[in-house]
Nucleic acid binder design. Structure first.
Lengths: 219, 219
DNA sequence: AGCAAAAAGTGCGTGCACGCAAGTTTGCGT
DNA sequence: ACGCAAACTTGCGTGCACGCACTTTTTGCT
């Protein structure tokens, strides 16, 4: 009812997409990502090479997608699932941290592969941006319609903060020797995300407060 | 003094880069972007095609760069230039708005071209992200070292907000018919930027306040 | 059920990004 | 002043992204 516009068509597309993801990851793990040609992925998934990049616009994207697959929608769901009494900021932070917390994954080795290879790291960072739109919808729903852009900006900022966290997590921290000189070596990803999200809580609180006062009953 | 590490070498690189930008834009304007081959740009700039993409990783990037060229550094400078009495939020907003305000440019027609062609629009949106790092440095300097990531997150959020503004400005607004249904048709870009930046001011204020109280006498 | 429109998959051709391994220029030490 | 080392440029080769036109499948309508 929600996504099912046509039914069978959508279903097949999902299947193809998943087959491609899975094939891409499997082959990358077996041979190493540099020894995987697009043709191989396509063949393993049983489609033409041309079809492959109707779905993915780069090999890295396909591999990474196997791990990050439906994180976007899950984040949005998790936010929406929080009761209204919970502060928006907490709802968002918890939802995201939850999604990025290592669930003792079968993907453990895949993550190792990703964080190792530069090209895959880049692709992985880009996946943070994917949460923006679903998250914007979820926030928008909680805020009513504070401003035309408030929800989107907040969602985009959250996504950006997550990206910063992922960068920190993934990079050897080779940047300039800053003033204090002391930066967390690598920390756990959830903690990192919490700390990059922290500076945004005032903005989330303010938006929520404004929504609460601004439109207790009106539009 | 600032950027001059080696001198002559850097200078030549700048020159080459600028020549490529300029050539790309000129040819795109003359023939339309679809009738410009990378080889043409390279030839017009007097370098090999291979060299061209040592500088730019896509044709669109080169064209757009001619317009957005040094916006990044200017934003950072503008923030740094604001006296310390000015609220950080205001400093940032003003600096950015200033940089995105149409200066009766010679680039007027270039902007028209960019906003017209989808591929160029995408590349243009990406330029917003370029302000992140310089801006992070500028903010970091004003905040001392509030937290390890505060400045970066704020800068990234600001960049994201700018991106949202650019998207709104550039897109026909074909998105879902939201609740209120009333969205600004296109508005002026500066106004749009102000309005997307608005939700972030609480975060900027909070960071500034925290920096002011946290370290009243240090750096 | 049969048909017409839409959508997905496919083959082909073109232009491009990028690694690699020279060749060339610049900068620096002695 | 001279030569060495590092940086930049270049030619070449490979794999790939993507537009276009065509075939096959799904869907909605009568």
């Amino acid at each position: 009812m929600t996504t099912r516009r046509t039914g069978l068509r959508e279903q097949k597309k999902r299947a193809t997409r998943e087959a491609l993801r899975e094939a891409a990851l499997r082959l990358a793990l077996e041979r190493g990502p540099d020894n995987v040609r697009v043709d191989d992925i396509a063949e393993a998934a049983g489609v033409s090479p041309r079809t492959y990049n109707n779905y993915f616009s780069s090999r890295e994207q396909a591999i990474v997608a196997a791990v990050t697959a439906e994180r976007e929608s899950r984040v949005a769901e998790a936010v929406a699932a929080q009761p209204d009494q919970v502060r928006l900021a907490d709802a968002v932070v918890d939802a995201i941290v939850e999604q990025y917390t290592d669930p003792g994954e079968p993907h453990r080795d895949a993550m190792l592969l990703i964080t190792t290879r530069p090209a895959l790291r880049e692709a992985f960072l880009d996946t943070a941006a994917a949460i923006e739109h679903p998250l914007a919808d979820a926030i928008s729903q909680r805020l009513g319609d504070s401003g035309p852009h408030t929800a989107r900006v907040l969602a985009a900022s959250v996504a950006a903060a997550v990206r910063v966290a992922l960068e920190q997590w993934v990079r050897p921290v080779s940047t300039s020797p800053a003033a204090s000189g002391l930066v967390v070596p690598s920390g756990s990803l959830p903690d990192l995300i919490r700390s990059t999200l922290a500076p945004l809580t005032p903005a989330l609180d303010a938006a929520e407060e404004r929504a609460r006062r601004g439109q207790p009953d009106s539009v």
